[in-house]
Design a protein around this nucleic acid. Sequence first.
RNA 1: CGGAGCGUAGCGCAGCCUGGUAGCGCAUCAGUCUGGGGGACUGAGGGUCGUGGGUUCGAAUCCCGCCGCUCCGACCA
Length: 435
Amino acid sequence: MRLTRSLVPTIKEIPSEAQIASHRLMLRAGLVRQTSAGIYAWLPAGYRVLQNIARIVREEQDASGAQEVLMPTLQSADLWRQSGRYDGYGAEMLRVKDRHERDLLYGPTNEEMITDLLRQSIKSYRELPQNLYHIQWKFRDEVRPRFGVMRGREFLMKDAYSFDLDQAGAVIAYRKMMLAYMRTFRRLGVQAIPMAADTGPIGGELSHEFIILAPTGESQVYYDAAFETIDTSPAAFSFDSESDLERFATLMTTPYAATDEKHDEAAWAKVANKREGRGIEVGHIFYFGTRYSDPMGLRVAGPDGSQVIPHMGSYGIGVSRLVGALIEASHDDAGIIWNDAVAPWKAAILNLKMGDGTCNAICEDIYAKLAGNALYDDRDDRAGVKFNDADLMGHPWQIIVGPRGAAKGMVELKRRATGERVELSVEDALAKISG
RNA sequence: CGGAGCGUAGCGCAGCCUGGUAGCGCAUCAGUCUGGGGGACUGAGGGUCGUGGGUUCGAAUCCCGCCGCUCCGACCA
């Protein structure tokens, strides 16, 4: 995109309503604007990041064998009455009435709806297992929204739901998701640690939250550095091998890892390589057996003809929350430092002298060759403005085109994460960016 | 849900206490100079002072209601 033709409203001042780094930077870099408390509009740059994260999440869900669907945001209250959660959920659930005075709700999660879909559709154990997910907007009417998109009321979430014939099958599904999650977070450029968690209002028996470290995290976390060296690649573990999954689950649940509520000083004292800091929850997985399938009447015929109640799990990743969390985990005084995989654009082209024939020609050439992966700063502004905005927006690469180098056919390539700058030919710079 | 604040130009704020012509910085627009880390000068545009009512000759300013937003706590993906 050309910056002069784009809605990327960067701001110099620190917005007064934002307290934490990610929120300030998301506003300053023109990623989002708040439309009401805890509700945000995603501007072009922010939406590209959101889509990049969603794409990676989707690819890893698909690789694990989960199937993508899309369920509605509005749900009938009747479904929630069947599971018993309509009255239990509390004021966090946004309840609405339609013109016929029927009770609806804006979904905070989809266990009821997916269970309803499955009970309509499957009749036999032969149709299990199933794992379905969607990436969709949720609404939770938080008492006190804050921290920008990290605790918004409307948020984008990937939620998956597994259905298995029995607990043993459900545990395999759970382990597959745990593996998919580790790969997802690795690709997003962050170290996530699975920590045993309480199951909360979803109910159930087995649950882990995935926490990434960031100085402004909501809770104190403790874990064994052993997590950092576990190879989760397809070469190490296959989704198709139960023994691989078991070995993986053991590796993920054996080293010490705990949030402050579950912290055990005695066990912690025995850990050789300690890691400690503030953590942000970016994912949560649950196994809850027949908590929904039973009351909602999901039954399949088992191998012996008897009626079997499938075992379920649900698995969430906070996609919009991750945008803030990734920034919390990766920024400096100048601005955001995007990981290559999620950056809105791979590179920014900084034309330091708009109107100069040589500079313009080089920039246009690079812009065409980067085909949509670059933001071209074609504003008639001074160099300092462009440097500062590029640092603020956090593009992994900056291609700096100024009259000095341009005369020799050279450009400067700056790596945002390290600050390293090298003078290269256009060809070499492009090769380095794509390589 | 308890407690505390704040709503004045796109953003950040002053003015309010002590009522009397709506201000500052940045941003925006025009022009000139400038040109490698948020440049300078000249000029210009932009406001029903959140909203409704009350007091008053007169309200951004005082009083009451409402709405919105933020912070602390409890809660929470």
